[in-house]
């Protein structure tokens, strides 16, 4: 569940260009994460070394996960402050591969904003970066508002529960309307760091992704591993909170909302440069995100 912080550098490299390759890579990430979690659970000091049938093992794992989640919550803001990109360089001062790659980012990017690694990092990063972009591009904010208005009926048509879907939708509409009036980056920061509000926005994006995947199920079914249907995939990997976003999620979200995203992949992959990928392909990105295995942060380009 908190794979953001656990998936280490053993994740496969991302030097692929087709969607299918991305998916293969991500399935490994998921698998690795699960193994890692089990491994961690075994090492837990609260867990006896021998199997004890009287103790509910699930409970122990759950308690540990909760503890990790609490620690992350206490130590990391959902959307962090605007940091200089050199802070990233410092982070990897002892790591020649990473620091070499970060250096190649410096000519293009100037700042980084870190997000909370709770499995919602991509979505929170997307929401913040996009709303911030909208503050400076009012016509885009108007377009987005119109899209949001229409999206509710689409979700109802796809069979999402009316009462709760409406609740998440209304919250998003209120945030957008509020930004139309007194929009400022500070305001966006406050909204995105307010627990209730931020989580509501995240859920609504999850519903939009799920709806887009299910509407185009025939196409997306080719990219889903493990013999699951698109609907099952959505129930297990998209709609629940704290589930990490993979390439399918990003493909679906950027296509549904019509917003271009560039992801820079910082990992141990071959080559000195940082691989990048634009979603949807051939789009002009308005949001730049930094991917490190299992986690997304927001990047600011110099232009």
């Amino acid at each position: 569940m908190f794979s953001d912080i656990k998936a280490g550098d053993t994740t496969p490299t991302h030097n692929h260009s087709s969607v299918r390759d991305w998916i293969v890579g991500d399935a490994c990430t998921i698998h690795y994460t699960v193994m890692e979690q089990q491994h961690n659970a075994q090492e837990s000091p609260t867990k006896p070394s021998e199997y004890d049938p009287d103790i509910n093992q699930d409970e122990l794992i759950k308690a540990q996960e909760k503890q990790i989640a609490e620690e992350i919550k206490a130590n990391t803001a959902m959307i962090g402050s605007l940091d200089d990109l050199s802070t990233l360089e410092q982070e990897y001062s002892n790591d020649p591969v990473y620091s070499g790659k970060v250096k190649t980012l410096l000519p293009k990017y100037c700042n980084v904003r870190r997000t909370r690694p709770d499995g919602n990092c991509f979505l929170r990063g997307f929401i913040f970066a996009y709303l911030e972009y909208c503050i400076h591009h009012r016509d885009e904010l108007a377009r987005f508002k119109k899209y949001l208005e229409g999206s509710k009926e689409e979700l109802f048509e796809m069979g999402f529960p009316k009462f709760t879907t409406e609740d998440f939708h209304d919250m998003f509409m209120e945030v957008v309307s509020d930004l139309e009036g007194s929009g400022s980056v500070d305001r966006v920061e406050a909204v995105c760091n307010d627990g209730g509000t931020s989580d509501y926005l995240v859920v609504y994006l999850r519903l939009l992704i799920s709806s887009h995947l299910q509407k185009n199920a025939e196409f997306f079914s080719f990219f889903i591993e493990g013999g699951r249907t698109v609907e099952e995939f959505c129930k297990q990997e998209v709609e629940p909170m704290y589930r990490e976003c993979d390439h399918l999620h990003i493909v679906a979200l950027t296509a549904a909302v019509g917003v271009g995203v560039r992801v820079m992949y910082l990992d141990r992959g071959e080559g000195a440069a940082v691989a990048s990928h634009d979603f949807p392909e051939d789009s002009t990105p308005v949001i730049h995100l930094l991917y490190r295995p299992g986690h997304y942060d927001i990047l600011y380009n110099k232009a």
């Binding site: 569940m1 529960p161 129930k235 297990q236 709609e239 629940p240 909170m241 589930r243």
Partner: peptide
Amino acid sequence: HPDTWNPAWS
């Protein structure tokens, strides 16, 4: 099963 819980449920 927090990982299969859907916030759109009531």
